[in-house]
């Protein structure tokens, strides 16, 4: 027996010789422990993210050591920092280039709501251009908060139904943002 528990098995029925569970749970388990984040760091929250990736906090423990700098292979868009209005369409384009299933995390006050930049040039929260799953408050948030937000994303990923992305509600959500 190893002293390390890598990951708990999903809920299911087990007896000697077999284990039965739902496909949703197996896929969710695999997905949530291998999320590839795309860091979209525009300012100081990005510096906190560098600390989060470093040895002290080590986001790799959550299966997210592989930064995907191409949106096409990424599962999670992490927007960290102030997004100017001129940058808005670019965030939207990056989101469009990601393959389904995809999740978005707004890290810090600026990405969540515009923060202190209540002004003509700054987008008042990235949820004006892309749908957001988890908001992390803070200015900037500490690495612990970013990890907490990431674990919230893991919960969402692990419990998501395989049919969610084909549902009419999801289509309506994307259409609201003018995506496809």
């Amino acid at each position: 027996m190893s002293q390390y528990n890598i990951v708990d098995p999903p809920e299911g029925y087990s007896a000697p010789g077999f284990f039965a569970t739902t496909l949703d749970r197996v896929v969710g388990l695999a997905r949530k422990n291998s999320i590839w984040p795309l860091p979209f760091a525009t300012s100081c929250c990005g510096i906190e993210f560098m600390a989060t990736m470093g040895a002290n906090y080590d986001l790799a423990r959550f299966g997210a050591e592989r930064m995907s700098f191409s949106p096409r292979q990424a599962d999670l868009l992490m927007v960290m920092g102030t997004i100017a209005k001129k940058m808005g369409p670019i965030v939207n384009q990056v989101y469009e280039q990601m393959a389904e299933p995809r999740w978005v995390m707004a890290v810090g006050a600026c990405a969540s709501s515009g923060g202190i930049f209540d002004t003509y040039s700054v987008l008042q929260g990235i949820d004006k251009v892309v749908p957001v799953d988890v908001y992390v408050p803070g200015c900037p948030p500490r690495p612990e908060q970013i990890i907490d937000g990431f674990m919230k994303i893991q919960e969402l990923v692990g419990s998501e139904s395989l049919r969610r992305r084909y549902s009419p509600e999801y289509r309506v959500l994307l259409e609201k943002y003018g995506i496809k």
């Binding site: 209540d118 003509y120 700054v122 008042q124």
Partner: peptide, 21 residues
């Protein structure tokens, strides 16, 4: 600034805060 901005933001008659909030 963004192309669709319909005013000139540094003129004094416009408040600093984003009016579209």
């Amino acid at each position: 600034n963004v192309e669709y901005l319909d005013y000139f933001p540094m003129r004094k008659e416009y408040p600093l805060e984003d009016q579209t909030r």
